[in-house]
Simulated assay, not measured.
Amino acid sequence: MDKVWASALEAVADIPDDASLAVGGFGLSGIPATLIRALYDHGVTGLKVVSNNCGTDGHGLGVLLAAGRIARVTGSYVGENKEFARQYLAGELEVELVPQGTLAERLRAGGAGIPAFYTPAGVGTQVATGGLPWRHAPDGTVSVASPPKETRDFAGRPYLLEHGITTDYALVRAWRGDHHGNLVFRKAAANFNPSAAMAGRVTIAEVEELVEPGELDPDTVHLPGVFVQRVVALSPRQAAEKKIEKRTVL
């Protein structure tokens, strides 16, 4: 089955308002920037995004955030995105902050059909007891807070129950991919991309290099095509566009 679509805009055209969306990447590394821009052009709003972070001001998911298209974020890191912080503190955006390893496992579990699991991460903190602010009121008070989590002891050690995450769609970026949707991720881009792809009911992948079926060594494939429904081949200019969140000179 050939899963290649003619353009990013066509590939995201059926994503409706209020959809849930898993998005790969870490900071600005490995983010599906072309698909995000196409989603912005599509005009969709009210999105419920699951991603490690929400891009930066003017880049990645920050483009959708600045346009007021995102209603809720489940993530681990605010980072350098001042607009993200502003919207959250102003009560314009609901944010569920999750320990980074827990978020990765929740996505992986959802994609693997595992409804829930126990983890020691967060024991003894507000992650366990609840009360973390998900949404602020305009006056700065907390209008929606996280609920307490179920705790259970295993071998004398407490663990928290966390639920797997699945989403309506997923957007990811791969280094190489074939027409059947088999994907290879390169270096730091192999962060949240595989687990985000698994969590989406419809997964759309932008690939820097599109190859014919059979050209990928099966031993190098990080994500099999069964998890990918649509593939978009990037132009050389799009493939070369890789922003840096914070440049450091030693």
Rank of each mutant, 00 (worst) to 15 (best):
A137E: 09
P133H: 03
Q126F: 11
A109V: 09
F192P: 07
A170D: 08
I114T: 15
F154S: 07
A137Y: 06
D139H: 07
P138E: 13
A190P: 00
G131R: 02
R157H: 14
S146C: 06
R108L: 14
P115T: 15
T129K: 04
A170Y: 09
E162G: 05
A109T: 10
Q126Y: 13
A174R: 00
L171D: 04
G181M: 02
P158F: 06
G181N: 01
A128R: 02
T119S: 13
V142S: 03
H136Q: 08
V142Q: 02
R152M: 13
W175I: 01
H136S: 07
A174K: 00
G181E: 01
A190I: 05
V172A: 05
M198T: 12
N191Q: 12
N191S: 15
L160W: 05
A137K: 12
L161I: 09
A116M: 11
T167W: 13
V123I: 15
I165L: 15
R108A: 14
D178M: 02
Y159S: 03
T166P: 07
I165D: 12
E150N: 09
A112W: 10
S195R: 13
W175A: 01
P147E: 14
V142F: 02
S143H: 03
V184N: 00
G156P: 01
Y159M: 06
H136E: 08
A197K: 06
P115W: 12
L183Q: 00
Y169W: 15
P148W: 09
D139K: 08
T119I: 11
H180N: 05
R152C: 08
R152S: 11
A128Y: 02
H136A: 06
M198A: 15
V123Q: 03
T129A: 10
E150M: 11
T125I: 10
E162K: 11
A196H: 04
H163G: 13
W134G: 06
Y169M: 09
M198P: 10
Y169S: 07
T125Q: 07
L160M: 08
Q126V: 10
A145C: 08
G130K: 07
P158G: 09
G156Y: 01
L183C: 03
L132Q: 03
R108M: 13
V142I: 11
R173Q: 05
A109Y: 05
F117Y: 15
A174D: 00
T151N: 09
P120E: 12
H163S: 15
A189Q: 03
V123R: 04
A170S: 15
G156A: 06
N182T: 00
L161N: 11
A190T: 04
H163Q: 14
K149S: 04
G177S: 00
P133G: 05
P120Y: 12
R135F: 04
S143Y: 01
I165N: 10
S143M: 06
P158E: 05
D153Y: 12
T167F: 13
A170W: 07
N193P: 02
P138Q: 14
L160R: 06
S146G: 08
A137V: 12
F185N: 00
P148C: 09
S195F: 14
A112N: 15
H180G: 07
S143P: 02
